[in-house]
Design a protein around this nucleic acid. Structure first.
Lengths: 232, 232
DNA sequence: CGCCAGTTTGACCAAGATCAACGCAAGTGG
DNA sequence: CCACTTGCGTTGATCTTGGTCAAACTGGCG
């Protein structure tokens, strides 16, 4: 996932890691406005597809509201979710002219679509935007590598604990965490089955680490225990 | 992994996907020469570290010869290999000022190091280099996503079959495939144990899908069977 | 109220991990 | 030149984690 590129906050490109130069300078704000200008708003209903695997990649997206999942289906129906994108996250900038994964709305969502040709023109005008895009991709790559470690080497308990903490951090939740996605989505994100996710959550509840007031709401009662479970 | 950026071949930036423009034009070759100019050659012995996890990221690298692994160690010793880099592949361009993974030589290797500050100057002179770097990262991200699917949802047999085919493709091997890495490296790359890797390889051998003339050499006798095993 | 989709729990099963030998080829030193 | 060591690789026996199958539960909604 690419977090917070463009729009409100714009924390990612505030400083370019590659150049070490602060990116905020004259002309920068204009670009933001320009970016907003070329974006096309689009509402997506729950479970509706934003783009399909293999479809031509003619633009990239940013989540305005709601949650989006980036996923892939195997021939026999096994599914894998590469990432969840929340408000402010960008996605869909794939290489090779077509999307490698499909994007679907987890809940009713609004996304902004930035056509590639218009983005190109912006890039030609000012390379800050190119740096931002590059940084975004780099960030996504770092996230993917961390997730590879999780999928390749972590136990079910560690995966679920990591997931809860990641989600809490990304959604700035201190205690109460609401999950926009279903258990099956979590399972497919963590490389587990829905039953295992349930069991681990129930286990955490039994040990007083979390509370589950409703299926899509989790209270983090003992964050330290979760953190300990991550690299046990 | 970032394949073939800069130097001989330079296939990746031959056409920029983002802009759709052919990147080869006047001044391009100069940049290649310039890139070679800022690179510092370094020989690395087998199993020696090129940079460590958490060390400051002051440059990126390209493999000249040999093989490099990008890996991470968990607190309790579990290891994960994010990628293998062969001659021509680039690596080490991490975000956030420090390396998230460590890089080690699988076999005796020679790498070229490109300091970040010098790269910046090149970028300022011509943005083709920025595009190339960006494309490289995008490519790495695509690879990482594919690997997430493998680690999250594939069986041991599918993983090993995918590995053999990936390796064959990347090393342009038609039949005979030599593995520079040890079984343990393969296991840590595929999220398996060394015993499972051995057993699966032995199984393939028993069914006549491959031959194993020596531990580090594998002959692909039935490529179709391997391909079928990938998405069985 | 009853249905339905999603969630939870339990009983059982299997893929792959762990533990333990054994094989084998490349050094190493006498 | 040959015992001996050492580091991988391979194979077998057993165990554990998480998957599979099945049933019960829960909350929302017509």
């Amino acid at each position: 996932m690419f977090r917070s590129f463009g729009g409100d906050g714009f924390p990612v490109v505030r400083r370019s890691r590659l150049t070490g130069q602060p990116a905020a300078r004259s002309g920068h704000l204009d670009l933001l406005v320009a970016l907003e200008g070329i974006g096309v708003r689009r509402a997506v209903a729950r479970d509706a597809e934003i783009y399909g695997e293999g479809s031509p990649c003619g633009g990239w997206y940013k989540v305005i509201s709601g949650t989006v999942r980036i996923c892939k289906l195997m021939a026999d129906g096994r599914r894998h979710i590469a990432e969840f994108c929340f408000a402010g996250d960008s996605f869909g900038l794939d290489i090779g002219g077509e999307h490698l994964f499909s994007a679907e709305a987890v809940s009713d969502a609004i996304v902004m679509r930035f056509p590639l040709h218009a983005t190109r023109q912006l890039i030609d005008k000012n390379q800050h935007i190119a740096r931002g895009l590059c940084e975004l991709t780099l960030r996504g790559h770092a996230h993917a590598q961390t997730r590879m470690l999780l999928l390749g080497r972590m136990t079910a308990i560690e995966r679920v604990a990591s997931f809860l903490l990641e989600l809490a951090e990304r959604r700035d939740a201190t205690r109460v965490l609401d999950l926009p996605m279903a258990r099956l989505d979590i399972a497919d994100y963590l490389g587990l089955t829905i039953e295992t996710v349930c069991r681990v959550l129930s286990g955490f509840k039994r040990h007083g680490v979390i509370a589950i007031p409703s299926a899509h709401r989790i209270e983090l009662l003992d964050r330290d225990a979760l953190a300990a479970a991550c690299d046990a």
